[in-house]
Design a protein around this nucleic acid. Sequence first.
RNA 1: GCCGUUGUAGCUCAGUGGUAGAGCACUUCCUUGGUAAGGAAGAGGUCGUGAGUUCAAUUCUCAUCAACGGCUCCA
Length: 642
Amino acid sequence: MVKISFPDGAIREYPDGSSAMDIARSISEGLARKVLAAMVNGSVWDASRPIHADASLRLLTWDHAEGRSTFWHSSAHLMAEAVESLFPGVKFWVGPAVDKGFYYDMDLGGRSMTEEDLRKLETKMNELAKQGNAYVRREISKDDAVNYFSDKGDEYKLDLLQGLNDGEITFYTQGAFTDLCKGPHIPHTGLIKAIKLTSLAGAYWKGDERNKMLTRVYGVSFPNQKEMDEHLLMLEEAKKRDHRKLGKELGIFTFDDDIGPGLPLWMPNGTIIIDELEKLARETEEDAGYKRVVTPHIAKENLYLTSGHLPYYAESMYPPMELEGVKYYLKAMNCPHHHKIFDAEPKSYKDLPLRLAEYGTCYRYEQSGELFGLMRVRCLHMNDAHIYCSREQFAQEFRAVNEMYLKYFKIFGIEKYVMRLSLHEPSKLGQKYINEPELWLETESMVREVLKESDIPFVEVPDEGAFYGPKIDVQIWSAIGREFTLATNQVDFAQGRRFKLSYTNRDNQPEVPLIIHRAPLGTHERFIGFLLEHYAGKFPLWLSPVQVKILPISDRFMEHAQHTLARLKKAGLRAEIDDRNEKIGKKIRDTELMKVPYMFVIGEKEVEADAVSVRKQGKGDAGMFPLSEIILTLTSEKENRQ
RNA sequence: GCCGUUGUAGCUCAGUGGUAGAGCACUUCCUUGGUAAGGAAGAGGUCGUGAGUUCAAUUCUCAUCAACGGCUCCA
């Protein structure tokens, strides 16, 4: 007998060799039907695998993340079986579960797959699923495994085997398909009831662009059609939030072939949002002791040689223009320009910390395949600033920057994000990272402390730092689920030295300042792209391009509408009159669709009372208010950025 | 940059080897209507661009540009 302890604390005895499935069945048949895998002593096992020792056990179903990923990984195997039947001789690389679904990378041996093939594969998969074949686990020696894949001429699986040793190699077989796989898997293919292969893509082998490109097929599957329908509905909803769609509908930005890829044109509505964001940044930075500067969009080659950017990033900068034998580059970052401002006048410790801020325009020649709406562009406006400080001042300055982030996030209601602390990799000092082992450790731990103090959840990622120091990135997700860095806060102890920046310290000695690069509002492009999706286009009053739409019931009330418009404008509100020859229902509908926060309806009653009937976007009729009263309400809402 | 897909009116999308259609938007007229679409008429596209095949190409082929889904990259 073995003692099995359950999550609720219960401990029961079962015959030695019982599987999780046996145990589930002993509880109820209904449960057994739902079990996908089991958590045994903290690792995920096949439900059918015999348990030979006392263990803690948690049965995993579709309701558990581990259950779902097991389900999706098993679906990848099912897909591989289907692919093998339609493309004999195909070789597989890896087929993991991902956030929502699964993929499998494969080498089709020179053949190519089409969207049509995906439909055929789905049909085949459904057919195979109906057979309800069990996923059978088999432990195998390394020699046997190597022989098996040598016979097949499968260099990919042989490559995987290289990293494995006897005792940790297992094969899984379902139906006609056998794969090297550590598992676990769901009990049988019959549990997979709804299947959709979503996309066909290329993916470099081992993620290295020097390697061969494999074919990657993405798919998603569910234990019932209802879940699939919900998933598809969710995708539809996400599409409606897509900033590219909303940006077009609301007249925020556009692209034009004659301007160039990745070069957004900001339309009047988008420019209003830019102006409001810059106003917020100016106020906030002024309060925090920043000084504004303005720098040119181009600079000589030498500047970027000094900064050290050019050797690393030449291919992602626009090529230089050459004038009188001198090369000029479009600036890809503002820091070197700011360093030159620091350097323009001698500095003493009394001048520190010096905080230079600029909404700087940068140009980066991002790879063509990387461009993505406003989120990844080639012309960007960065909420940039550089803080020059002493080592003693560093922690305090970094903390203040962090607080500024949180202040902004509160204003925008940004809650779903992850802070990522990127660290250096000691073995790459002097190559990828500047060779300052002590400074790396010191600043990394200071940054870590600041994050802990402010109680912000964060993850640490090794070998992701900038070449000049550790950094904190704020990661967010676009409507379609792609991850982006929204904002960044970086430590820099390289450029100060490179630019020979110094200040005179208390002991009358020259000292190199530490530099903090920070961009809490990221770039206008990415931030507004994010906000469009975050608010689903329904901007708060202060950011709305049109804040109030005045809707006269008929043209008899135009005079009162004009009078109302004048009053609103005088109060600093952005308002427009809908003077079209349309019925009020139509005007309301169109204004709702344009997501204007307030509508003022004006008819007979309102003229008599010198009032307006107020309608809030998405909320319907709010009743009649005297104009002066509602103006006060709106002004306060706007000024408080609610 | 690489793999795959797509490209028809301002937008969303039909369609065809014989020089194109719908809905919304737009213009004009009628209507002056009280909280999510009033009615009528009209205008608008050399079917992304270039070349080839053909008697004939928006449709087939190739190239190119751009967008989209991924991979790689992201100071």
